[in-house]
Simulated assay, not measured.
Amino acid sequence: MFNWVLIDEIIVNALKEDISNIDITTDNLIDNKSISKACMITKENGVIAGLAVAKRVFEMIDGEIKVIFNVKDGDEVTKGVNIAEIKGSTKAILKGERIALNILQRMSGIASISKKYSEIVKDYPVRIVDTRKTTPGLRILEKYAVRVGGCHNHRYNLSESVMIKDNHIRAVGGIKKAVAKIKDRTSHTVKIEVEVESVNKLKEAIEAGADIVMLDNMNIDEMTKAVKVAEGRVLLEASGGLNIGNIVDVAKTGVDIISVGALTHSAKAMDISLNIF
């Protein structure tokens, strides 16, 4: 599911940020031999994501701690559900609480909004995808949460695939020149996506040999026309200002992909608490 080398690095950095020396409260109040039980309780409805990562936080603090889940990633839960039970060192529970919750709440919030987007277009042959508008350092977690919610991932980073955007085009001197140059310098296995802002530029991108064309900030009429012009020769991605209120209209145009930055950059963290009992 995860590259745990990368996940462990995220957790270590988070713990170093949260405990620069000692936990001045816990280490002075709690005996080393103290054992406690705790549970994680949802305080609102949503979709759970990130349980294994939250568990890993506690395990990295104390390898003897036990975490048992009552739900799994992707489950839709209501307010008041006991989603996990934790038993072990009281100190470890208290020291890991905030980092585990921060990660779990963030990922569950993204999964929850992704679920709403995926459900609203489920009757259309279109994919909702995320963008690179993620929290620095947390992209692997956030893109996983998008998938848990039923949406899909766009490219993971700048090294993964080609996307020739407006600034690239201006810098090189046109779509045709940009596509030709990138084809000459990359493998035949690499897909090439080109961003355009008009139907005429779409035609130019198709003629240049693009595999995917991003329709940037086009209105519904322009997208509809673009689909007719493309005639299935390239994949069409709608992008720019798309949200829960307008994606159904966009899906109806016949585009193949709708990219929504809000899946990650505007997701509200799901409210989850941890209580020792």
Rank of each mutant, 00 (worst) to 15 (best):
N3D: 15
L6D: 14
E9Y: 08
A14E: 15
E17I: 06
E17V: 07
D18G: 15
I19D: 05
I19G: 09
I24N: 15
D27F: 10
L29F: 14
D31I: 04
K33A: 10
K37G: 11
K37P: 03
A38I: 02
A38Y: 01
A38N: 05
M40K: 00
I41C: 09
E44H: 14
G46I: 06
K55P: 00
R56A: 00
F58Y: 06
F58N: 01
D62R: 01
E64P: 06
E64D: 15
K66Y: 04
F69T: 00
V71K: 01
K72M: 02
D73F: 04
G74D: 07
E76G: 14
V77H: 09
T78W: 11
T78S: 15
K79M: 14
G80N: 09
I83K: 00
E85V: 02
I86A: 00
I86S: 00
L94Y: 07
E97G: 06
R98K: 14
L101Y: 00
Q105N: 11
I110W: 11
S112T: 15
S112M: 06
K116D: 12
D123Y: 05
Y124N: 07
P125Q: 08
I128E: 04
I128T: 01
R132N: 08
K133W: 03
P136G: 12
P136F: 12
R139F: 02
I140K: 10
E142L: 09
A145G: 08
A145M: 09
V148A: 04
G150L: 04
H154R: 04
N157T: 03
N157H: 02
S159Q: 03
V162S: 07
M163K: 07
D166H: 12
R170P: 09
V172G: 05
I175S: 09
K176L: 12
V179L: 12
A180N: 13
K183V: 09
E195D: 11
S198H: 05
S198I: 04
S198A: 07
V199Q: 09
K201E: 15
K203D: 12
E207W: 05
E207P: 10
G209R: 08
V213L: 14
M214V: 07
L215N: 11
I220N: 13
M223C: 14
M223H: 09
T224N: 14
V227G: 09
V227L: 08
K228T: 11
E231N: 15
R233E: 14
A238R: 11
G241F: 12
L242S: 10
I244E: 13
I247G: 11
V248P: 07
D249F: 12
D249R: 13
V250R: 09
V260G: 06
V260H: 06
T264K: 06
K268N: 15
I272R: 02
F277N: 13
